Amino acid sequence: MSEPTAPSPAPEPEPLWRHLVGESLRERRHDLGEKLTETAGRAGVSPQYLSEIERGVKEPSSEMIAAVAGALGLTLVDLTLDVAERLRPPASAGAQPAAHRSAFALAA
């Protein structure tokens, strides 16, 4: 009789979209050297709300995402592509078939 094999570990859950959007927006703001108050003012949101978006606490509307992205000089396509790249597993985790990657990129 063979020994029972240990169950393989469950795959890590994918991150939430709002977390990745917030991460991308925060990085862009930091790259620009801006404070929350500066970006929030141009976007027409409070600094507290922008902070909550960046931390992934709030699920912002598409209008809010567009306003903050625009205040940072990003298009929605730029933001979506950045988030899509963050969702892509690292190359060392096993390459996805090329057809799957293309379809994902087109969907973004």
Rank of each mutant, 00 (worst) to 15 (best):
R42K: 14
T80Y: 12
A95N: 08
V57S: 13
G70S: 12
R101P: 00
A105H: 09
K58M: 11
G70Q: 04
A84W: 07
A98P: 06
L76R: 12
T37M: 10
E38H: 12
K58Q: 15
R29F: 00
L81W: 10
E3W: 14
V57C: 10
P7E: 14
H19R: 14
P4D: 06
V57R: 13
P15L: 06
V45H: 00
W17M: 12
P47V: 09
L72P: 00
M1G: 14
L36W: 08
L32D: 06
L76W: 07
A69W: 00
S46R: 07
Y49L: 08
E27R: 08
K58E: 13
P89K: 00
G73D: 03
P7N: 09
G44S: 07
M64K: 15
M1N: 12
R26L: 08
R42A: 11
L106P: 00
S8C: 08
G73P: 01
Q48A: 10
L76D: 08
R55Q: 12
A40H: 04
A71I: 04
G22T: 02
K35P: 03
L36I: 02
R42P: 03
S24F: 05
V21W: 02
G56K: 01
A107M: 10
L72I: 05
M64L: 11
K35L: 13
T80N: 15
P4S: 07
L72N: 00
E59D: 15
L50R: 00
E14V: 09
P4K: 07
L76I: 08
Q48M: 07
L74S: 04
G94P: 00
E38S: 12
G44P: 03
F104W: 14
P60Y: 07
V83R: 01
F104S: 13
A108I: 05
G73K: 06
R55G: 08
G33F: 02
G56E: 01
F104V: 13
L50Y: 02
T5F: 09
E38T: 13
P13Y: 07
L81R: 13
K35R: 15
V21F: 03
G56M: 01
R18K: 13
E34D: 12
E63T: 15
D82N: 07
K58A: 14
A105G: 07
G41V: 02
P60M: 05
P15M: 04
L106Q: 12
A108D: 06
P97L: 05
R101D: 10
M64N: 15
E63D: 14
A6Y: 09
S51A: 11
R18Q: 11
A69G: 03
P90N: 05
E3S: 15
A66D: 11
P7V: 07
A99R: 10
G33N: 04
P11C: 02
Q96F: 10
D78T: 01
P7G: 08
T37N: 10
E12T: 05
K35G: 09
G70K: 02
E12R: 09
Q48N: 11
A10K: 10
T80C: 11
